[in-house]
Amino acid sequence: MLAEKYAERIDKIFAKYPTKRSAVMPLLFIAQEEYGWITPESLVEVAELCDLDPTQVRSITGFYTMYSEKPKGKYWLQVCTDLACALRGADEFHHQLLDTLGIEDGETTEDGLFTVEHVMCLAACDKAPMLQCNFHFHENLDLDKVNALIAQWRAEANAAPVNG
């Protein structure tokens, strides 16, 4: 599974640290990259690779917010609505985005393309409103710019159908 497909990357990760346990977070990112979320099977596989109990790995995925324990949309949009961004209109922007997509915070669109969540500070306070799409930053946004991005992502998704 992951061990075969990503053998080279996984070896490089283990080589960084004196303990196997330190590799648990980077390996979980590989699992998430592969499946879109941390599936129960991949969680067990990461646990075996790191000589950990699956419960220990489950505690990691629960503690750290960047691991998804359930399927998300193909485009996982995280809008910073923290103080510095909110002072520059991030709350309104977040609500406009939700209205545009017709979902509530934390929900995924019916076509499985977009999940929207509000998150804490993303260290881009001078470029608010901003969002992170699958961990890539998009800054200095407004409704027009985000609509253009959504159209671009929809076109991208139509060209390459969503993976099961």
Partner: peptide
Amino acid sequence: RPARRGAAAAASGAD
């Protein structure tokens, strides 16, 4: 905002 949005946001625990 409508109350339902606040409730959904709180329940999602997404932040």
